[in-house]
Amino acid sequence: MSAEAAVFYLFAAVTVASGAVVVLARSLIYSAFALLFTFFGVAGLYVLLGADFLAATQLLIYVGGILVLLLFGVMLTHKLYDLDLRSEVTQFLPGIIVATGLILILASPVRWPLDLRGLMFRTQWAVGAGRPPAATTAEIGQLFMGRYLLPFEAASILLLVALMGAAMIVRRRKDA
């Protein structure tokens, strides 16, 4: 096994295993911390894929922002002395059936005796010259100011609205 393969399987295992814990853990706190490892695992895969800027963004925004927000959400919606922050589960069996079905449809590896490969293995994706791992930050910055100027500016409106909206919703009414 090459070093690349070893690192890939390590990150893939971390991602999938912690993803499973997020979904299956009984305690919200366990879920939240497992989510931390999922985000790390995905960031590791980004590095393997040569997406250095994106890996850093993943760590900064997902781990530093979104996860912290979610943790705040967990903490603020429970009493602090309430030790087991349980999250109840409903319709577990149908959920498992749907998820297993999805995995099989998307990524079933079976080729023999019948060709039952999932979509991911069956489809001929647009595979081309590819992009050898190299620093991407400069190029991404140029694209933001060039081809992606419109979405870049539109995203700033989105952030303004989200900021304004979240502040407005949480602020208590004066008469309340």
């Binding site: 893939a12 995905v42 999250s87 109840e88 999805l102």
Partner: peptide, 20 residues
């Protein structure tokens, strides 16, 4: 792609079964 497919299915499982 396989890793992503598993992650997608897990996410759907969480969405379908969680009450919180």
């Amino acid at each position: 792609l396989a890793v992503s497919a598993v992650l997608f299915s897990l996410g759907m499982l969480g969405i379908l079964t969680r009450r919180n």
